[in-house]
Simulated assay, not measured.
Amino acid sequence: DREGKFLNDIGAMGQGPGEYAGSLYSEAIDEKNRCVYLAPFFGSNKILKYNLDGTFASVIELGETLNKPKLHLHPDGSLSVTHLCFKGRNEMMVAHIAPDGTLTSYKPTAEQIINPMDKDGNFVGFNNEIWSYNNTENFNFMTMPTDTLYQYNPEQNRVTARFALQNPPKGKDVFLIYNELPGKFLATVWGTGTIAIDLQKQQSHYVKLVNDYFGGLPAPMNFTNGYFFAMYEPLVLMDKIEERLSASGCTDKDKEVLNKLLDSLDENDNNVMFIGKLKH
Protein backbone atom coordinates (compact mmCIF):
# COMPACT_ATOMS: atom_id res chain seq x y z
CA ASP A 1 0.00 0.00 0.00
CA ARG A 2 1.06 3.67 0.04
CA GLU A 3 2.77 3.19 3.41
CA GLY A 4 4.92 0.37 2.04
CA LYS A 5 3.07 -2.49 3.73
CA PHE A 6 2.98 -5.74 1.73
CA LEU A 7 -0.53 -6.67 0.66
CA ASN A 8 -0.44 -9.84 -1.44
CA ASP A 9 1.05 -11.65 -4.42
CA ILE A 10 -0.84 -11.60 -7.71
CA GLY A 11 -0.65 -14.85 -9.66
CA ALA A 12 2.50 -16.95 -9.91
CA MET A 13 4.88 -18.58 -12.36
CA GLY A 14 3.56 -21.82 -13.80
CA GLN A 15 1.24 -23.44 -16.31
CA GLY A 16 -1.97 -23.68 -14.25
CA PRO A 17 -5.04 -21.43 -14.13
CA GLY A 18 -4.07 -17.87 -13.28
CA GLU A 19 -0.36 -18.61 -13.68
CA TYR A 20 2.00 -17.19 -16.29
CA ALA A 21 4.96 -18.85 -17.98
CA GLY A 22 7.90 -16.47 -18.13
CA SER A 23 8.00 -12.75 -17.47
CA LEU A 24 5.22 -10.15 -17.59
CA TYR A 25 5.35 -7.04 -19.74
CA SER A 26 2.41 -4.84 -18.78
CA GLU A 27 -0.19 -4.31 -16.09
CA ALA A 28 -3.31 -2.26 -15.42
CA ILE A 29 -4.85 -1.73 -11.99
CA ASP A 30 -8.57 -0.94 -11.97
CA GLU A 31 -9.16 0.26 -8.41
CA LYS A 32 -12.75 1.31 -9.13
CA ASN A 33 -13.76 -2.19 -10.23
CA ARG A 34 -11.24 -3.85 -7.89
CA CYS A 35 -9.29 -5.87 -10.41
CA VAL A 36 -5.79 -6.18 -11.90
CA TYR A 37 -4.85 -7.13 -15.47
CA LEU A 38 -1.50 -8.71 -16.38
CA ALA A 39 -0.08 -9.33 -19.86
CA PRO A 40 2.78 -11.84 -20.43
CA PHE A 41 5.88 -10.78 -22.37
CA PHE A 42 5.21 -12.94 -25.44
CA GLY A 43 3.87 -16.30 -26.58
CA SER A 44 0.43 -15.87 -24.99
CA ASN A 45 -2.93 -14.96 -26.50
CA LYS A 46 -4.44 -14.17 -23.10
CA ILE A 47 -4.68 -11.28 -20.67
CA LEU A 48 -4.98 -12.49 -17.08
CA LYS A 49 -7.51 -10.86 -14.74
CA TYR A 50 -7.24 -10.96 -10.93
CA ASN A 51 -9.12 -9.55 -7.99
CA LEU A 52 -7.35 -6.88 -5.93
CA ASP A 53 -6.65 -9.47 -3.23
CA GLY A 54 -4.54 -11.36 -5.78
CA THR A 55 -6.96 -14.23 -6.42
CA PHE A 56 -7.42 -15.31 -10.02
CA ALA A 57 -10.64 -14.12 -11.69
CA SER A 58 -10.60 -15.01 -15.41
CA VAL A 59 -8.72 -14.84 -18.71
CA ILE A 60 -9.45 -12.65 -21.71
CA GLU A 61 -8.88 -14.62 -24.91
CA LEU A 62 -7.61 -12.45 -27.77
CA GLY A 63 -7.25 -15.10 -30.46
CA GLU A 64 -3.75 -13.97 -31.42
CA THR A 65 -0.31 -14.25 -29.83
CA LEU A 66 0.89 -10.98 -28.30
CA ASN A 67 4.40 -9.55 -28.62
CA LYS A 68 5.43 -7.11 -25.87
CA PRO A 69 1.84 -6.04 -25.15
CA LYS A 70 0.96 -2.72 -23.52
CA LEU A 71 -2.31 -2.31 -21.61
CA HIS A 72 -4.46 0.78 -21.13
CA LEU A 73 -7.43 1.15 -18.80
CA HIS A 74 -10.09 3.58 -20.03
CA PRO A 75 -12.26 5.73 -17.71
CA ASP A 76 -15.33 3.57 -18.47
CA GLY A 77 -13.56 0.44 -17.20
CA SER A 78 -12.88 -0.98 -20.66
CA LEU A 79 -9.41 -2.23 -21.54
CA SER A 80 -7.24 -1.82 -24.63
CA VAL A 81 -4.04 -3.61 -25.57
CA THR A 82 -1.52 -2.97 -28.33
CA HIS A 83 1.63 -4.89 -29.20
CA LEU A 84 4.35 -5.31 -31.82
CA CYS A 85 2.33 -6.44 -34.82
CA PHE A 86 4.69 -8.56 -36.95
CA LYS A 87 4.24 -8.86 -40.69
CA GLY A 88 3.27 -12.38 -41.69
CA ARG A 89 2.64 -13.42 -38.07
CA ASN A 90 -0.06 -11.11 -36.73
CA GLU A 91 -3.22 -9.49 -38.02
CA MET A 92 -4.29 -7.46 -34.99
CA MET A 93 -2.48 -4.33 -33.80
CA VAL A 94 -4.92 -3.22 -31.08
CA ALA A 95 -7.72 -5.00 -29.22
CA HIS A 96 -10.41 -3.37 -27.11
CA ILE A 97 -12.37 -5.24 -24.45
CA ALA A 98 -15.61 -3.53 -23.40
CA PRO A 99 -16.93 -3.86 -19.81
CA ASP A 100 -19.41 -6.48 -21.05
CA GLY A 101 -16.56 -8.52 -22.57
CA THR A 102 -17.15 -7.56 -26.22
CA LEU A 103 -13.87 -7.76 -28.15
CA THR A 104 -13.05 -5.37 -31.00
CA SER A 105 -9.79 -5.60 -32.94
CA TYR A 106 -7.97 -3.07 -35.11
CA LYS A 107 -5.92 -4.24 -38.10
CA PRO A 108 -2.89 -2.07 -38.93
CA THR A 109 -2.09 -0.21 -42.10
CA ALA A 110 1.00 -1.12 -44.10
CA GLU A 111 2.93 1.69 -42.37
CA GLN A 112 2.02 0.45 -38.90
CA ILE A 113 2.96 -3.22 -39.26
CA ILE A 114 6.52 -4.28 -38.36
CA ASN A 115 8.83 -6.39 -40.50
CA PRO A 116 10.40 -8.81 -37.97
CA MET A 117 13.09 -10.12 -40.34
CA ASP A 118 16.47 -8.60 -41.16
CA LYS A 119 18.04 -8.49 -44.64
CA ASP A 120 19.53 -11.96 -44.09
CA GLY A 121 16.21 -13.53 -43.18
CA ASN A 122 16.87 -13.74 -39.43
CA PHE A 123 14.03 -13.05 -36.97
CA VAL A 124 14.85 -9.85 -35.07
CA GLY A 125 11.34 -8.67 -34.23
CA PHE A 126 11.92 -8.41 -30.50
CA ASN A 127 14.79 -5.98 -31.07
CA ASN A 128 11.99 -3.47 -31.56
CA GLU A 129 10.36 -1.77 -28.61
CA ILE A 130 6.94 -0.36 -27.80
CA TRP A 131 6.23 2.48 -25.37
CA SER A 132 2.96 3.46 -23.72
CA TYR A 133 3.06 5.41 -20.45
CA ASN A 134 -0.64 6.05 -19.68
CA ASN A 135 -0.25 9.57 -18.28
CA THR A 136 -3.50 10.82 -19.84
CA GLU A 137 -6.92 9.28 -20.44
CA ASN A 138 -5.99 8.74 -24.11
CA PHE A 139 -4.35 5.49 -25.19
CA ASN A 140 -1.09 6.65 -26.77
CA PHE A 141 1.73 4.38 -27.90
CA MET A 142 4.84 4.38 -30.04
CA THR A 143 6.89 1.62 -31.67
CA MET A 144 10.60 1.82 -32.36
CA PRO A 145 10.42 1.52 -36.18
CA THR A 146 8.25 4.65 -36.45
CA ASP A 147 8.74 8.31 -35.53
CA THR A 148 5.11 8.90 -34.56
CA LEU A 149 3.10 8.76 -31.34
CA TYR A 150 -0.17 7.02 -32.18
CA GLN A 151 -3.52 7.24 -30.42
CA TYR A 152 -6.22 4.56 -30.37
CA ASN A 153 -9.87 5.66 -30.28
CA PRO A 154 -12.02 2.74 -29.04
CA GLU A 155 -15.33 4.37 -30.01
CA GLN A 156 -14.20 4.63 -33.64
CA ASN A 157 -11.80 1.66 -33.54
CA ARG A 158 -9.17 3.84 -35.21
CA VAL A 159 -5.46 4.49 -34.76
CA THR A 160 -4.37 8.01 -35.71
CA ALA A 161 -1.15 9.99 -35.54
CA ARG A 162 -1.02 12.06 -32.35
CA PHE A 163 2.44 13.66 -32.38
CA ALA A 164 5.77 13.70 -34.21
CA LEU A 165 8.79 16.01 -34.27
CA GLN A 166 9.52 18.00 -37.40
CA ASN A 167 13.14 17.61 -38.53
CA PRO A 168 14.07 15.20 -35.70
CA PRO A 169 17.76 14.55 -34.93
CA LYS A 170 19.35 12.02 -37.24
CA GLY A 171 22.08 9.47 -36.68
CA LYS A 172 22.86 5.77 -36.69
CA ASP A 173 22.26 5.39 -32.95
CA VAL A 174 19.51 8.00 -32.59
CA PHE A 175 16.01 6.93 -31.70
CA LEU A 176 13.09 8.80 -30.19
CA ILE A 177 10.70 8.04 -27.35
CA TYR A 178 7.52 10.11 -27.10
CA ASN A 179 5.39 10.59 -23.99
CA GLU A 180 2.31 12.75 -23.40
CA LEU A 181 1.73 14.52 -20.09
CA PRO A 182 -1.18 16.81 -19.20
CA GLY A 183 -0.57 19.87 -21.42
CA LYS A 184 2.82 18.70 -22.72
CA PHE A 185 4.63 16.24 -24.92
CA LEU A 186 8.06 14.87 -24.05
CA ALA A 187 10.39 13.76 -26.82
CA THR A 188 13.42 11.89 -25.51
CA VAL A 189 16.27 11.86 -28.02
CA TRP A 190 18.23 8.82 -26.88
CA GLY A 191 21.77 9.81 -25.90
CA THR A 192 21.10 13.55 -26.29
CA GLY A 193 18.35 14.74 -23.97
CA THR A 194 14.64 15.40 -23.63
CA ILE A 195 12.59 18.03 -25.45
CA ALA A 196 9.45 19.36 -23.74
CA ILE A 197 6.72 20.76 -26.00
CA ASP A 198 4.21 23.07 -24.28
CA LEU A 199 0.87 22.77 -26.09
CA GLN A 200 -0.57 26.04 -24.78
CA LYS A 201 2.49 28.19 -25.45
CA GLN A 202 3.44 26.32 -28.64
CA GLN A 203 7.06 26.30 -27.49
CA SER A 204 9.70 23.58 -27.23
CA HIS A 205 12.98 23.39 -25.32
CA TYR A 206 15.54 20.85 -24.23
CA VAL A 207 14.86 20.44 -20.51
CA LYS A 208 16.39 18.96 -17.37
CA LEU A 209 14.41 17.97 -14.31
CA VAL A 210 15.42 18.57 -10.69
CA ASN A 211 13.80 17.33 -7.49
CA ASP A 212 13.30 20.61 -5.62
CA TYR A 213 11.66 18.77 -2.72
CA PHE A 214 15.03 17.15 -2.04
CA GLY A 215 17.69 19.80 -2.46
CA GLY A 216 17.65 20.10 -6.23
CA LEU A 217 18.82 16.55 -6.94
CA PRO A 218 18.86 15.83 -10.69
CA ALA A 219 15.85 13.69 -11.60
CA PRO A 220 15.18 11.33 -14.50
CA MET A 221 12.33 11.95 -16.96
CA ASN A 222 10.31 9.00 -15.69
CA PHE A 223 6.53 9.46 -15.94
CA THR A 224 4.06 6.58 -16.03
CA ASN A 225 0.44 6.00 -14.97
CA GLY A 226 0.15 9.63 -13.89
CA TYR A 227 3.19 9.59 -11.60
CA PHE A 228 6.82 10.67 -11.60
CA PHE A 229 9.16 8.06 -10.15
CA ALA A 230 12.87 7.58 -9.56
CA MET A 231 14.52 4.56 -7.92
CA TYR A 232 18.09 4.33 -6.63
CA GLU A 233 20.31 1.83 -4.91
CA PRO A 234 21.42 3.48 -1.65
CA LEU A 235 25.09 3.85 -2.68
CA VAL A 236 24.10 5.42 -6.01
CA LEU A 237 21.81 7.89 -4.24
CA MET A 238 24.51 8.70 -1.70
CA ASP A 239 26.94 9.51 -4.53
CA LYS A 240 24.34 11.74 -6.21
CA ILE A 241 23.74 13.60 -2.95
CA GLU A 242 27.48 14.16 -2.43
CA GLU A 243 27.79 15.43 -6.00
CA ARG A 244 24.91 17.85 -5.49
CA LEU A 245 26.33 19.06 -2.15
CA SER A 246 29.59 19.98 -3.89
CA ALA A 247 27.84 21.92 -6.68
CA SER A 248 28.27 25.70 -6.70
CA GLY A 249 24.53 26.35 -6.90
CA CYS A 250 23.63 24.24 -3.87
CA THR A 251 22.04 26.61 -1.31
CA ASP A 252 22.21 26.33 2.47
CA LYS A 253 18.59 25.19 2.49
CA ASP A 254 19.38 22.52 -0.11
CA LYS A 255 22.36 21.34 1.96
CA GLU A 256 20.21 21.03 5.07
CA VAL A 257 17.68 18.83 3.26
CA LEU A 258 20.34 16.76 1.49
CA ASN A 259 22.41 16.13 4.62
CA LYS A 260 19.30 14.99 6.48
CA LEU A 261 18.51 12.57 3.65
CA LEU A 262 22.13 11.39 3.51
CA ASP A 263 22.17 10.69 7.25
CA SER A 264 19.07 8.51 6.86
CA LEU A 265 20.68 6.18 4.30
CA ASP A 266 22.67 3.01 4.75
CA GLU A 267 24.42 1.19 1.94
CA ASN A 268 22.73 -2.06 3.01
CA ASP A 269 19.23 -0.58 2.80
CA ASN A 270 16.67 -1.54 0.20
CA ASN A 271 16.31 0.71 -2.83
CA VAL A 272 14.95 4.20 -2.32
CA MET A 273 12.04 5.38 -4.51
CA PHE A 274 10.79 8.94 -5.05
CA ILE A 275 7.18 9.23 -6.22
CA GLY A 276 5.15 12.30 -7.21
CA LYS A 277 1.66 12.54 -8.71
CA LEU A 278 1.27 14.58 -11.88
CA LYS A 279 -0.99 17.60 -11.70
CA HIS A 280 -3.68 18.21 -14.34
Results as ranks from 00 to 15, higher is better:
110 A>Q: 13
165 L>P: 03
152 Y>P: 12
134 N>G: 07
189 V>A: 01
137 E>K: 15
163 F>K: 03
144 M>T: 11
125 G>D: 11
186 L>D: 02
112 Q>M: 14
152 Y>C: 11
122 N>Q: 14
181 L>R: 10
171 G>N: 03
171 G>A: 04
189 V>Y: 00
190 W>F: 07
134 N>T: 09
180 E>M: 03
101 G>W: 03
122 N>C: 06
139 F>Q: 09
146 T>G: 09
174 V>N: 08
163 F>I: 02
126 F>E: 15
116 P>V: 04
121 G>N: 13
143 T>F: 11
117 M>T: 12
136 T>A: 11
194 T>I: 01
169 P>W: 08
191 G>K: 05
155 E>V: 08
116 P>C: 07
134 N>K: 13
118 D>T: 09
158 R>V: 02
149 L>H: 08
168 P>T: 08
113 I>E: 05
120 D>M: 14
151 Q>E: 14
118 D>F: 10
145 P>S: 06
121 G>E: 11
109 T>G: 14
124 V>N: 11
108 P>M: 05
117 M>F: 15
121 G>L: 15
129 E>G: 10
134 N>Q: 12
135 N>I: 11
132 S>C: 15
193 G>L: 02
106 Y>P: 00
175 F>G: 00
115 N>G: 07
162 R>Q: 05
127 N>T: 13
176 L>Q: 07
103 L>D: 01
178 Y>C: 06
158 R>A: 10
111 E>S: 11
150 Y>D: 05
177 I>Q: 12
176 L>N: 04
128 N>K: 13
122 N>F: 14
153 N>L: 06
105 S>D: 00
134 N>Y: 04
190 W>T: 04
155 E>K: 15
112 Q>K: 14
135 N>S: 07
137 E>V: 06
128 N>F: 13
153 N>R: 05
110 A>I: 04
148 T>V: 15
169 P>C: 02
166 Q>S: 06
190 W>M: 08
114 I>P: 05
175 F>W: 15
153 N>Q: 07
175 F>A: 01
107 K>R: 13
136 T>H: 11
182 P>F: 01
173 D>W: 10
145 P>I: 06
101 G>K: 05
186 L>T: 07
160 T>M: 03
152 Y>H: 08
140 N>D: 13
